[in-house]
């Protein structure tokens, strides 16, 4: 009974959010046409790509209890798939999808060893992956002559035919899609199963939840979306090389966005990514100490407000509505 009542409460809320979200998306989609400054479009482009990645990290860390330290592996693999694809004659739009698929396939492949590890061991396992891939792509040059960097650096061929507006729309699409995907997943059977696993996985297993499968689903979905967002980023950048593709910088951005906004809250990554994009441009002037500042923010948020911005706000709102209910009765 209690569950059903909850469903009734959440469903209108879902519908209520839908219309403004679509309206905002349409307005944002019109930006390149009505001649918004290019710098703004760049900010928004970064916002959407980072948002998709942060949403997926939130799905893993906040809802599935999988603190994955390997988003860079998915981003880099997808970026490389796109770049190499354009070298062998694959159109860029197929390259982006192929990037997502390769990242998802990689996630499925490594899930067999890494899911044997629980909690902290999972974090260790995923920490190693980007480093391994970086080595692989430093040593191994799949096609042609490498152009950039020491290892397999590639330009994404045929970038010239893709306009800035197109790249922007792609980023918008993946960003908005990731929001819808999160809403959908969290209200589906998968979402409730994940919540059960996060809270106590042995209890969840004894309730008939297939722990391995659900974790695998969320891991593969996260890899796919992160990969697509990564491929779109490299379509914009136009070249890729192993040092930055598998850099820990991706993890910093994604983790920062989720942690600032609030890990395990749905709105968290949106709020957090806005802050991160602002930070990105504020810190551009202080590039030499930007990592120190980001590190201090991570430590500070975790110590002072571990629920992040949305977590803290939510607490007060829930507190308010609860007290309202109490006074009415």
């Amino acid at each position: 009974m209690a569950v059903r009542r909850n469903m009734k409460v959440t469903l209108p809320r879902l519908r209520g959010v839908l219309t403004p979200l679509i309206a905002v998306t349409v307005v944002l989609a019109l930006f390149p046409i009505i001649g918004v400054p290019r710098l703004w479009l760049l900010y928004l482009f970064l916002f959407f790509t980072y948002l998709a990645m942060a949403n997926m990290w939130n799905l893993l860390a906040g809802y599935s209890g999988l603190v994955s330290l390997c988003p860079a592996a998915f981003v880099g693999l997808a970026g490389y798939t796109l770049a190499i694809g354009t070298w062998v004659g694959l159109p860029w739009y197929l390259g982006i999808i192929a990037g997502g698929i390769v990242a998802a396939a990689f996630a499925a492949l490594i899930s067999f060893p890494v899911f044997r590890m629980k909690g902290i061991y999972f974090a260790i396992g995923t920490l190693v992956l980007p480093e391994v891939l970086r080595f692989v792509f430093t040593i191994w040059a799949p096609v042609g002559e490498p152009v950039y960097g020491g290892g397999a650096g590639y330009t994404v061929k045929g970038v010239a035919e893709v306009s800035g507006a197109q790249v922007y729309w792609l980023a918008l699409a993946i960003g908005v899609a990731s929001i819808f995907l999160m809403r959908y997943i969290l209200r589906s059977k998968l979402g409730s199963g994940l919540a059960a696993i996060r809270d106590n996985d042995s209890t969840a297993a004894s309730c008939g939840i297939n722990v391995f499968n659900l974790k695998l689903f969320s891991f593969v979905i996260a890899a796919f979306v992160t990969g697509i967002a990564g491929a779109i980023y490299y379509l914009y950048q136009g070249y890729i090389e192993p040092m930055s593709a598998f850099s820990v910088r991706w993890l910093v951005i994604i983790m920062l966005a989720t942690v600032i906004g609030g890990e395990g809250t749905e709105e968290g990554p949106v709020v957090g990514t806005i802050v991160v994009v602002f930070l990105y441009f504020l810190l551009a002037r202080y590039a030499e100490i930007s990592l120190i500042i980001q590190g201090v923010i991570l430590v500070g948020i975790m110590l002072l407000a571990p629920q992040g911005i949305m977590g803290s706000i939510r607490r007060t709102r829930i507190y308010r509505s609860l007290s309202q209910l109490a006074t009415r009765r």
């Binding site: 603190v67 974090a123 983790m255 030499e288 100490i289 120190i292 980001q294 923010i297 991570l298």
Partner: peptide, 26 residues
Amino acid sequence: AFRISMDATLIIAFGISLILQNTYQL
């Protein structure tokens, strides 16, 4: 951090790592 959650210690240690690396570079 230990009292908050396991993730918190991980994330804080990660933050310390970033601070240290940047400091060495400076």
